[in-house]
Amino acid sequence: MTTTKTPQGLEKWLGWMILLLLMGIAAGVFKAQYELNPAVAIKAAPPVAPVGSTNQGSALGKSQKLPPAGPLEIFTTDTLADKINGKADLYLTNGFVRLECRRFRLADAGQEWFEVFVYDMGEARRAFAVYSLQQRSGGREPALAPHAYQTENALYLVHGQYYLEIIASFSSTTALDRMKAFAADWIQNTPVSGPELQEAELFPAARRVENSLKLIGTDAFGYEGFRDIFTAEYRMGAANLTAFLSLRPTGPEAEKLSDEYRKFLLAFGGQALNPATDIPGLKAVNILDTYEIVFSRGRILAGVHGAEDLQQALELSKNLYEHLGRHEK
């Protein structure tokens, strides 16, 4: 029998395993400390605005010509879901700041009422995004605001950073007239500042489908790099084409983004095309039997999305390019 003081295989192996276990425990403890104890977390969290509190400065809190049928309610990012539940996400991902809403009676007597929702989205672009994402088929109301429409029982519009919804408990023309009067009054009493939506003017008017302007905030056309992309539909012969554009901070950045979009398309199985065109730097890709065109002019990124006919897409691109040129001056 030999006496040995140096560890043998099993002992050594076991020793290392135990050390590994200790390291695992240390890692576990280290990971656990990132999940803040609730007692620590509340110190870091901002105070929550109470639900339904009234606010002197709110537009709906001021006296209105119609009798209110309920208290003014105010919701913030924390509480928005309490009011509109599953739809809160749509607003929250688009920069929602605050919602004020209140019901008004249509007349002093009677049960009919409408509810006004004023979504403060922080800036006009964001207000337009939520407006366009929910656009229903309905008649435009340009007299009220550049972006406004009505349906049988409701009125929707963008005013500066605000997105306004007025929804009636029943449908009638008198109700709509009252709501329009209410909206006009509210617009008058709610001064807004800040830049208007320039992009709306950048799309050529010819052959544009009415009410088709949309703003896609994130992940437009499935591409992560596309943020704040405006789209509009164009009637080209029998088909509808989608033109898009977006204002980027600088010219080179617009050019770079158009290039990256092309790479994105190619990475997903698109085929690069080289059509004859006068537009400098135009990229055309055939992907899943549709055509994607993208180019830049100045700091504007523009293009055509999902066209079925290349020639139509190029024609629309040309119109768009020329219109942008006029605008540049």
Partner: peptide
């Protein structure tokens, strides 16, 4: 469309 709140008869 526009659920769960909707709002318009057009929805």
């Amino acid at each position: 469309q526009n659920g769960p709140t909707g709002g318009s008869l057009a929805d």
